[in-house]
Protein backbone atom coordinates (compact mmCIF):
# COMPACT_ATOMS: atom_id res chain seq x y z
CA UNK A 1 0.00 0.00 0.00
CA UNK A 2 1.33 3.43 -0.90
CA UNK A 3 1.43 6.45 1.44
CA UNK A 4 -0.38 6.60 4.76
CA UNK A 5 -1.29 3.28 6.28
CA UNK A 6 -4.24 2.90 8.63
CA UNK A 7 -3.11 2.70 12.23
CA UNK A 8 -5.54 1.47 14.86
CA UNK A 9 -3.97 3.91 17.29
CA UNK A 10 -5.72 6.75 15.50
CA UNK A 11 -9.27 5.67 14.76
CA UNK A 12 -10.63 9.11 14.04
CA UNK A 13 -11.41 10.23 10.52
CA UNK A 14 -13.06 13.13 8.79
CA UNK A 15 -15.07 13.27 5.57
CA UNK A 16 -12.83 15.05 3.09
CA UNK A 17 -14.64 17.58 0.93
CA UNK A 18 -13.35 19.84 -1.81
CA UNK A 19 -13.18 23.10 0.24
CA UNK A 20 -10.60 21.46 2.54
CA UNK A 21 -8.26 19.89 -0.04
CA UNK A 22 -5.71 22.71 -0.01
CA UNK A 23 -5.88 23.13 3.77
CA UNK A 24 -5.19 19.44 4.35
CA UNK A 25 -2.28 19.39 1.90
CA UNK A 26 -0.68 22.46 3.42
CA UNK A 27 -1.29 21.76 7.12
CA UNK A 28 -1.27 17.95 7.33
CA UNK A 29 -3.66 17.86 10.31
CA UNK A 30 -3.17 14.91 12.73
CA UNK A 31 -6.24 12.99 11.60
CA UNK A 32 -6.09 9.20 11.39
CA UNK A 33 -7.73 8.90 7.96
CA UNK A 34 -10.05 10.58 5.48
CA UNK A 35 -13.18 9.35 3.77
CA UNK A 36 -14.27 10.45 0.30
CA UNK A 37 -17.34 9.78 -1.79
CA UNK A 38 -16.31 7.29 -4.47
CA UNK A 39 -18.50 8.94 -7.11
CA UNK A 40 -16.51 12.17 -6.85
CA UNK A 41 -13.45 10.38 -8.21
CA UNK A 42 -14.71 8.20 -11.06
CA UNK A 43 -13.50 10.55 -13.78
CA UNK A 44 -10.62 9.55 -16.07
CA UNK A 45 -8.20 12.19 -14.80
CA UNK A 46 -7.78 15.79 -13.76
CA UNK A 47 -7.18 18.00 -10.73
CA UNK A 48 -9.53 16.20 -8.31
CA UNK A 49 -7.68 12.92 -8.78
CA UNK A 50 -4.32 14.67 -8.58
CA UNK A 51 -5.29 16.30 -5.28
CA UNK A 52 -6.41 12.98 -3.87
CA UNK A 53 -3.16 11.35 -5.00
CA UNK A 54 -1.27 13.87 -2.87
CA UNK A 55 -3.54 13.45 0.12
CA UNK A 56 -3.19 9.69 -0.20
CA UNK A 57 0.58 10.04 0.17
CA UNK A 58 0.03 11.13 3.78
CA UNK A 59 -3.26 9.54 4.84
CA UNK A 60 -5.16 6.28 4.57
CA UNK A 61 -8.43 6.68 2.70
CA UNK A 62 -11.85 5.13 2.95
CA UNK A 63 -14.08 5.13 -0.15
CA UNK A 64 -17.76 5.59 0.56
CA UNK A 65 -20.10 4.92 -2.36
CA UNK A 66 -23.51 6.40 -3.02
CA UNK A 67 -24.15 5.19 -6.57
CA UNK A 68 -23.93 1.39 -6.76
CA UNK A 69 -27.59 0.82 -5.86
CA UNK A 70 -26.99 -2.50 -4.11
CA UNK A 71 -30.73 -3.01 -3.60
CA UNK A 72 -31.79 -2.80 -7.25
CA UNK A 73 -33.95 -5.74 -8.32
CA UNK A 74 -32.63 -5.23 -11.85
CA UNK A 75 -29.06 -5.92 -10.75
CA UNK A 76 -26.01 -3.71 -10.80
CA UNK A 77 -24.64 -1.19 -13.25
CA UNK A 78 -21.59 -3.13 -14.42
CA UNK A 79 -19.94 -0.10 -16.03
CA UNK A 80 -20.20 1.80 -12.74
CA UNK A 81 -18.72 -1.16 -10.87
CA UNK A 82 -15.80 -1.39 -13.32
CA UNK A 83 -15.04 2.31 -12.92
CA UNK A 84 -15.17 1.96 -9.15
CA UNK A 85 -12.71 -0.92 -9.35
CA UNK A 86 -10.29 1.19 -11.42
CA UNK A 87 -10.60 4.03 -8.94
CA UNK A 88 -9.94 1.76 -5.95
CA UNK A 89 -6.88 0.40 -7.73
CA UNK A 90 -5.45 3.91 -7.93
CA UNK A 91 -6.01 4.82 -4.27
CA UNK A 92 -5.87 1.49 -2.36
CA UNK A 93 -8.41 2.49 0.34
CA UNK A 94 -8.40 0.56 3.63
CA UNK A 95 -12.22 0.56 3.68
CA UNK A 96 -14.86 0.48 0.92
CA UNK A 97 -18.48 1.02 1.78
CA UNK A 98 -21.96 1.42 0.30
CA UNK A 99 -25.53 1.69 1.54
CA UNK A 100 -28.45 -0.53 2.40
CA UNK A 101 -30.59 1.20 -0.24
CA UNK A 102 -31.52 1.33 -3.90
CA UNK A 103 -31.38 4.05 -6.57
CA UNK A 104 -31.80 2.43 -9.97
CA UNK A 105 -34.79 1.13 -11.91
CA UNK A 106 -35.76 0.99 -15.59
CA UNK A 107 -32.34 2.31 -16.58
CA UNK A 108 -32.92 5.49 -14.52
CA UNK A 109 -30.64 6.39 -11.63
CA UNK A 110 -32.22 8.44 -8.84
CA UNK A 111 -29.40 10.25 -7.00
CA UNK A 112 -30.65 9.38 -3.53
CA UNK A 113 -30.51 6.50 -1.08
CA UNK A 114 -34.01 5.08 -1.35
CA UNK A 115 -35.12 2.69 1.40
CA UNK A 116 -35.77 -1.01 0.87
CA UNK A 117 -38.60 -3.21 2.14
CA UNK A 118 -37.05 -5.67 4.60
CA UNK A 119 -38.37 -8.97 3.22
CA UNK A 120 -36.84 -12.26 2.05
CA UNK A 121 -36.93 -11.34 -1.60
CA UNK A 122 -34.98 -8.12 -0.95
CA UNK A 123 -32.44 -10.08 1.07
CA UNK A 124 -31.89 -12.46 -1.84
CA UNK A 125 -31.38 -9.61 -4.32
CA UNK A 126 -28.96 -7.88 -1.96
CA UNK A 127 -27.00 -11.07 -1.31
CA UNK A 128 -26.64 -11.65 -5.06
CA UNK A 129 -25.56 -8.05 -5.71
CA UNK A 130 -23.17 -7.79 -2.76
CA UNK A 131 -21.59 -11.16 -3.57
CA UNK A 132 -20.99 -9.89 -7.09
CA UNK A 133 -19.53 -6.56 -5.93
CA UNK A 134 -17.17 -8.27 -3.51
CA UNK A 135 -16.09 -10.75 -6.19
CA UNK A 136 -15.40 -8.02 -8.75
CA UNK A 137 -13.61 -5.72 -6.30
CA UNK A 138 -11.78 -8.62 -4.70
CA UNK A 139 -12.49 -7.33 -1.21
CA UNK A 140 -15.12 -7.18 1.48
CA UNK A 141 -17.31 -4.11 1.60
CA UNK A 142 -19.14 -2.37 4.44
CA UNK A 143 -22.87 -1.70 4.29
CA UNK A 144 -24.24 1.43 5.94
CA UNK A 145 -27.63 1.59 7.63
CA UNK A 146 -29.56 4.41 5.87
CA UNK A 147 -31.52 7.27 7.34
CA UNK A 148 -35.09 6.88 6.18
CA UNK A 149 -38.30 8.85 5.99
CA UNK A 150 -40.76 6.08 5.19
CA UNK A 151 -41.39 2.41 6.03
CA UNK A 152 -42.99 -0.22 3.82
CA UNK A 153 -46.06 -2.33 4.44
CA UNK A 154 -44.11 -5.25 2.97
CA UNK A 155 -41.30 -5.19 5.57
CA UNK A 156 -41.14 -8.35 7.68
CA UNK A 157 -38.03 -7.66 9.77
CA UNK A 158 -36.50 -4.76 11.64
CA UNK A 159 -33.72 -2.92 9.83
CA UNK A 160 -31.12 -3.97 12.41
CA UNK A 161 -32.07 -7.68 12.12
CA UNK A 162 -32.14 -7.46 8.34
CA UNK A 163 -28.73 -5.76 8.12
CA UNK A 164 -27.18 -8.26 10.51
CA UNK A 165 -28.56 -11.21 8.58
CA UNK A 166 -27.41 -9.70 5.27
CA UNK A 167 -23.86 -9.26 6.54
CA UNK A 168 -23.80 -12.77 7.98
CA UNK A 169 -24.90 -14.17 4.60
CA UNK A 170 -22.44 -12.16 2.46
CA UNK A 171 -19.41 -11.69 4.70
CA UNK A 172 -19.85 -7.95 4.30
CA UNK A 173 -19.42 -5.82 7.40
CA UNK A 174 -21.47 -3.01 8.92
CA UNK A 175 -20.85 0.70 8.68
CA UNK A 176 -22.87 1.93 11.63
CA UNK A 177 -24.14 5.45 11.08
CA UNK A 178 -25.26 6.46 14.56
CA UNK A 179 -26.93 9.62 13.33
CA UNK A 180 -28.95 7.56 10.83
CA UNK A 181 -30.07 5.24 13.63
CA UNK A 182 -31.21 8.29 15.59
CA UNK A 183 -32.93 9.98 12.61
CA UNK A 184 -34.76 6.84 11.49
CA UNK A 185 -35.74 5.97 15.06
CA UNK A 186 -37.31 9.37 15.61
CA UNK A 187 -39.01 9.30 12.21
CA UNK A 188 -40.51 5.83 12.69
CA UNK A 189 -40.84 5.46 16.43
CA UNK A 190 -38.10 2.86 16.78
CA UNK A 191 -36.05 2.28 19.92
CA UNK A 192 -32.56 3.48 18.94
CA UNK A 193 -30.76 1.61 21.75
CA UNK A 194 -32.59 -1.61 20.91
CA UNK A 195 -31.42 -1.10 17.31
CA UNK A 196 -27.80 -0.80 18.47
CA UNK A 197 -28.19 -3.78 20.79
CA UNK A 198 -29.28 -5.94 17.84
CA UNK A 199 -26.11 -5.31 15.81
CA UNK A 200 -23.20 -7.63 16.72
CA UNK A 201 -20.25 -5.34 17.59
CA UNK A 202 -17.87 -7.74 15.85
CA UNK A 203 -19.55 -6.93 12.50
CA UNK A 204 -19.16 -3.16 12.89
CA UNK A 205 -16.03 -2.02 11.08
CA UNK A 206 -16.72 1.70 10.80
CA UNK A 207 -18.87 4.30 12.54
CA UNK A 208 -20.29 7.54 11.12
CA UNK A 209 -21.34 10.56 13.17
CA UNK A 210 -23.07 13.60 11.68
CA UNK A 211 -25.65 16.30 12.23
CA UNK A 212 -29.26 16.49 11.12
CA UNK A 213 -32.07 19.03 10.89
CA UNK A 214 -35.78 19.18 11.63
CA UNK A 215 -38.26 19.63 8.79
CA UNK A 216 -41.74 20.88 9.63
CA UNK A 217 -44.49 20.28 7.06
CA UNK A 218 -47.49 22.51 6.39
CA UNK A 219 -49.72 20.40 8.64
CA UNK A 220 -47.27 20.85 11.53
CA UNK A 221 -45.90 17.30 11.37
CA UNK A 222 -42.13 16.88 11.46
CA UNK A 223 -39.35 14.59 10.26
CA UNK A 224 -35.66 14.60 11.06
CA UNK A 225 -33.55 15.06 7.93
CA UNK A 226 -30.07 13.60 7.66
CA UNK A 227 -28.45 16.65 6.06
CA UNK A 228 -24.92 16.45 7.52
CA UNK A 229 -25.05 20.19 7.99
CA UNK A 230 -24.37 20.75 11.68
CA UNK A 231 -22.62 19.42 14.78
CA UNK A 232 -23.39 16.01 16.18
CA UNK A 233 -26.23 16.39 18.71
CA UNK A 234 -26.08 15.25 22.36
CA UNK A 235 -28.48 12.34 21.77
CA UNK A 236 -26.29 10.95 18.96
CA UNK A 237 -23.17 11.27 21.14
CA UNK A 238 -25.00 9.33 23.82
CA UNK A 239 -25.88 6.58 21.33
CA UNK A 240 -22.26 6.52 20.20
CA UNK A 241 -21.21 6.10 23.83
CA UNK A 242 -23.71 3.25 24.14
CA UNK A 243 -22.25 1.56 21.04
CA UNK A 244 -18.73 1.89 22.48
CA UNK A 245 -19.85 0.35 25.76
CA UNK A 246 -21.24 -2.59 23.79
CA UNK A 247 -17.74 -3.23 22.48
CA UNK A 248 -17.67 -1.40 19.14
CA UNK A 249 -14.03 -0.65 18.33
CA UNK A 250 -14.17 0.78 14.85
CA UNK A 251 -12.72 3.74 12.98
CA UNK A 252 -15.09 6.65 13.56
CA UNK A 253 -15.81 9.40 11.06
CA UNK A 254 -17.21 12.91 11.34
CA UNK A 255 -19.30 13.69 8.23
CA UNK A 256 -20.20 17.24 7.28
CA UNK A 257 -21.51 17.79 3.75
CA UNK A 258 -23.68 20.92 3.78
CA UNK A 259 -22.90 24.30 5.36
CA UNK A 260 -19.34 22.99 5.47
CA UNK A 261 -17.38 24.78 8.23
CA UNK A 262 -13.64 25.45 8.48
CA UNK A 263 -11.42 22.44 8.97
CA UNK A 264 -10.67 23.60 12.51
CA UNK A 265 -14.34 23.18 13.41
CA UNK A 266 -14.37 19.68 11.94
CA UNK A 267 -11.21 18.86 13.85
CA UNK A 268 -12.76 20.01 17.13
CA UNK A 269 -15.69 17.69 16.43
CA UNK A 270 -13.22 14.89 15.78
CA UNK A 271 -11.51 15.62 19.12
CA UNK A 272 -14.84 14.98 20.82
CA UNK A 273 -14.78 11.48 19.32
CA UNK A 274 -11.46 11.04 21.01
CA UNK A 275 -12.91 12.08 24.37
CA UNK A 276 -15.54 9.34 24.10
CA UNK A 277 -12.96 6.80 23.04
CA UNK A 278 -10.68 7.78 25.92
CA UNK A 279 -13.56 7.55 28.37
CA UNK A 280 -14.25 4.07 27.14
CA UNK A 281 -10.51 3.47 27.83
CA UNK A 282 -9.97 1.36 24.78
CA UNK A 283 -6.46 -0.06 24.76
CA UNK A 284 -6.35 0.74 21.05
CA UNK A 285 -6.76 4.47 21.37
CA UNK A 286 -4.24 7.16 21.96
CA UNK A 287 -4.56 10.89 22.11
CA UNK A 288 -4.94 12.96 18.94
CA UNK A 289 -1.74 14.77 19.99
CA UNK A 290 -3.49 17.90 21.21
CA UNK A 291 -0.22 19.79 21.56
CA UNK A 292 0.05 20.01 17.79
CA UNK A 293 -1.47 23.26 16.63
CA UNK A 294 -2.61 24.36 13.23
CA UNK A 295 -0.96 27.23 11.47
Amino acid sequence: MKGGTFDRKNLIGVGLRQPHYSYVLENKPPIGWFEVHSENFLMDGGPSLQFLDKIRQNYPLSFHGIGLSLGSAEGLDEAHLRRLKECLKRFSPFLVSEHLSWSRVGGIHFPDLLPLPYMDETLNFLVRNIDHVQAVLGQEILIENPSSYLEYNESMASEAEFLTHLCQRTGAKILLDVNNVYVSSLNHGWDAKAYLNTLPPSLIMEVHLAGHSLKTFEDGSTLLIDDHGSSVCAEVWELYHHALLRGVEAPTLIEWDTNIPSFEVLFKEAERVNEYLMERSSPYVQSLNPSKEFS
Binding site: E39, L42, M43, G65, G67, D77, I108, H109, F110, P111
Partner: peptide, 8 residues
Amino acid sequence: LPRSGNLD
Protein backbone atom coordinates in the same frame (compact mmCIF):
# COMPACT_ATOMS: atom_id res chain seq x y z
CA LEU B 1 -32.74 11.74 -15.61
CA PRO B 2 -29.30 10.17 -15.05
CA ARG B 3 -28.55 6.74 -16.45
CA SER B 4 -25.74 5.98 -14.03
CA GLY B 5 -24.66 6.71 -10.48
CA ASN B 6 -21.78 8.77 -11.78
CA LEU B 7 -23.36 12.23 -11.96
CA ASP B 8 -20.19 13.60 -13.53
